[in-house]
């Protein structure tokens, strides 16, 4: 959304968040179509399908409470320590079993894509959750553009490796760079996003600027941040948390209230943002996206392939 969005509007033209939020509440009430048009004209992303109508977590909370171990283990560390990250220029290597491999500048990746807003539930493996108004586009659109070859069965992703700007990469027990992966059908699913923004603003650095994955039916760590490499591969790729603790973090890591983390329950979650009395709610199968994605796993034993 930073530059690829071909428009002469500037960020200063964007509807102020308060007004936009008011508009959103009005829209929820009545006359959504009538009011949606002016919202679009002012440069906000098109409202997308699959959005939940649950109230989004505030931008302050979404950008102040992050697991991004490249910038420290504490939730408040990334907001503090990620600000020195250089995100412009940025490019992504796309390689492996693709027709048009190469190093793509971010602008390039974003040219021609339609950014849309997707308000998704976000469930961390640590049993807390948020509701995030992402701005992005379907990963499938990018994969279609670069041409997936028949032998490809998985997609592997890597985060930037730059210890000078990512203090967490200078030590610790994690083998950097952070890596994640999806089965090709998961990657092609229309729920799977490459996000470049939240709340119609560019992604904060601590949230994985300038471009990150969002897979809303899986635990948050699958949604890899600050991506610099996307590889189409034949074999299941190595993924960071699975490498660290294979008995605790499976390759799939689908949100599943019936399959507990070996050390804690996944039956329920606390919604971040409600203060001391933030409600604990029941965790939903596939984080509430079962209707859309359950068929991907038909016939699989999800307690074994967790």
């Amino acid at each position: 959304m930073r530059k690829g969005f071909r428009t002469d509007l500037r960020w200063s033209d964007v509807t102020p968040k308060e007004k936009w939020l008011n508009r959103r509440q009005l829209m929820a009430g009545a006359g959504a179509l009538v009011l949606a048009a002016p919202a679009l004209a002012q440069g906000t992303a098109a409202p997308g399908r699959y959005s939940t109508d649950e109230p989004p977590t505030s931008l302050e909370d979404i950008s102040g409470y992050n697991n991004f171990y490249e910038f420290g283990y504490d939730k408040e560390d990334p907001a503090r320590l990620a600000q020195g990250l250089t995100v412009d220029p940025w490019s992504v290597v796309i390689d492996g079993l693709v027709d048009r491999p190469g190093t793509y500048a971010l602008d390039d990746l974003l040219s021609g894509v339609t950014l849309e807003e997707r308000i998704y539930r976000f469930r961390c493996v640590e049993a807390w959750s948020m509701v995030v108004p992402w701005v992005g586009f379907e990963l499938a659109a990018l994969l279609g553009r670069v041409g997936v070859q028949p032998g490809a069965r998985y997609v592997a992703f890597e985060t930037l490796l730059r210890p000078e700007e990512m203090p967490g990469q200078r030590g610790g027990t994690i083998e950097w760079p952070y890596r994640e992966g999806l089965r090709l059908d998961e990657a092609m699913h229309p729920l799977t996003l490459l996000a470049t923004g939240i709340y119609n603003e560019p992604l904060p650095k601590q949230n994985g600027a300038p471009i990150r994955l969002v897979v809303p039916w899986k635990y948050g760590f699958k949604s890899i941040k600050s991506i610099v490499r996307i590889s189409l591969v034949a074999d299941r790729p190595q993924t960071t948390w699975n490498m660290l603790q294979p008995n605790e973090y499976g390759f799939y890591s689908n949100v599943n209230p019936q399959v507990d983390h070996p050390r804690w329950s996944q039956a329920s979650e606390r919604r971040v943002g409600g203060g001391l009395l933030a409600p604990r709610i029941d965790t939903l199968m596939f984080n509430g996206y079962a209707d859309e994605v359950a068929s991907l796993y038909a016939g699989m034993d999800l307690t074994r392939d967790f």
Partner: peptide, 15 residues
């Protein structure tokens, strides 16, 4: 800190 909202974004965990 609890009364003044100073326990951070997840005050329950902090506490």
């Amino acid at each position: 800190r609890g009364l003044s909202g100073g326990l951070g974004i997840d005050p329950v965990k902090t506490l």
